[in-house]
């Protein structure tokens, strides 16, 4: 009876929405970047499942209905890119060369550092796209046969670190131009970096937004090829 009720996808969907709702409230009330709504929702749901002994797979009957929407969400990323097309055309060389090199460097760093620390194959292919915006990163991981759950948590943490410390790191590196700052924030910390870049200036936010889509595209191209070279 109660198990039938929990096995209904409505259970997973409702639990996700409720936990995320609480996450947003906590985030707004505290104003702390560390209490990101996704992390709060993750902790709440995981704690609930562990306490009640409900399996992840049971919860995920509803959860996967929400995950499914990441597909169209990725397609929709083309819309903000299109809106900033003028900026892209004006600075095409810097933006294209920068994001392409950044994407290759990001993949290589995971593979080489992973080789150094003896990381397992599953771990490497799951975090190879961690600098990329989460919906695209999940697509890349699925294509490579990795664990999308690891991808999601690593990409969000990446985004958080950049969102919080990114501008300070850029100051340390003496990167001062708006173009370079905006691009770097988007390349390294995707959506969360973009939100922070937007706080600095609208142009930096737009550049970060462009960098997100391009970084995702180039990483999707580079990751499967490079992983064959450095197993």
């Amino acid at each position: 009876m109660i198990s039938d009720f929990i096995a209904d996808p409505v259970f997973g969907v409702t639990l996700t929405l409720a936990a995320y709702f609480i996450g947003i409230i906590v985030y707004k009330k505290t104003g702390s970047m560390y209490l990101h709504p996704m992390l709060v929702a993750l902790v709440l749901i995981a704690a609930f499942l562990l306490l009640t002994g409900i399996e992840y797979d049971t919860y995920n009957r509803g959860g996967e209905l929400i995950t499914f929407l990441l597909g169209p969400a990725t397609v929709a990323l083309a819309i903000p890119m299109h809106k900033h097309q003028k900026l892209l055309k004006k600075n095409a060389v810097v933006i294209l060369a920068g994001t392409a090199a950044g994407a290759v460097a990001g993949v290589l760093l995971v593979l080489l550092l992973g080789l150094l620390t003896g990381a397992g194959h599953l771990f490497k292919i799951s975090v190879i796209s961690k600098s990329v915006t989460t919906p695209i990163a999940v697509g890349i991981t699925d294509r490579l046969g990795g664990a999308a759950s690891l991808t999601v948590v690593f990409t969000i943490l990446h985004g958080l670190v950049g969102g919080i410390f990114g501008p300070r790191l850029l100051d340390l590196l003496r990167v001062r131009s708006r173009l370079a700052r905006g691009l770097t924030m988007g390349m390294l910390s995707h959506g969360l970096g973009t939100a922070r870049a937007l706080e600095e200036s609208e142009m930096e936010g737009a550049l970060a937004g462009l960098a997100i889509g391009l970084m995702g595209f180039f990483t999707a191209l580079a990751a499967p090829l490079l992983i064959q070279l450095i197993p």
Binding site: M38, A46, A73, S149
Partner: peptide, 21 residues
């Protein structure tokens, strides 16, 4: 796009299966 983060939540909960890893 306005509610993108909500869409990551169920996958992120899946991390509980990878604590050992």
């Amino acid at each position: 796009l306005d509610n993108l983060i909500l869409l990551f939540v169920p996958l992120s909960v899946g991390i509980m299966r990878y604590f050992d890893l």
